[in-house]
Amino acid sequence: MKLQRVLALVLRHLYLYKRSLARFMEVFYFPLLDILLWGFLTIYLQRFPGAVPGAVSFLLGALILWDILYRSQQGISLSFLEEVWSRNLLNLFVSPLTAGEFLAATMVLSLIKLGLTAAVTIALAWVLYGYNFFLIGLALVPFVANLIVLGWSIGIVTTAIILRFGQKAEVMAWGLAFLFQPFSAVFYPVSVFPPGVREAAWFVPATHVFEGMRSVIAGGGFPLADLAWAGGLNAVYLLLALAWFYSTFRVVRERGLLLRVGE
């Protein structure tokens, strides 16, 4: 893997963010709307007798963490789609750039993107609602790392699907992560799921992160077991996603689909 090639591709995408209002909005505008919407909703719900104690912490913490997962996935999928939209894929893949370097560059981009988004949402939550995200403490580091890795896995799978089925599958770039949201216990505990769904939900690494987060906020201590499960599942899913991506890339080369991805 050549660092110069990875950085070249990162630079190519940073040029886009420097001067595109649409891409700038993707990083700042939508997270702002999310924080406003969920923040006001939380304040409203807290007025009712018997409201969940610490609802602001639960909901805003969950929202910020979910956004990290989503931006991580988008960093990979949308970077790939940018190349499809600009009919640049062929130029890239006839250069010495390898598929692994391409993925590495999109991972770096996803880190940059989610870093910016997280900074905005964390600051807004503090300014608007007095919510300090960092009160979650040291557990934040493995929480965030696990969500980033899950986002990468979903992003890699999405990219493989678009590679294989062309631009008609690009809706996956926005939709696939949300398929996991209802079963990740983002805004509610796993205990609300009916039997069957509850057991299945534990196979989603994000479920362990969000359960762990609620446990930390409720004063339950460092959720080691949850983090171990999330880390183990993520390792398996990332390997499977990479295996699937490389297998799809091989099929795409066999069938000459790279020329048709943009159709």
Partner: peptide, 21 residues
């Protein structure tokens, strides 16, 4: 094939110069 529209000619060529080492 094309080159990314949102980049200048110099930026586009600079990216490929780096990709080709």
């Amino acid at each position: 094939v094309s080159l990314p529209y949102s980049l200048t000619v110099r930026e586009n060529l600079g990216i490929f110069a780096r990709l080709y080492g």
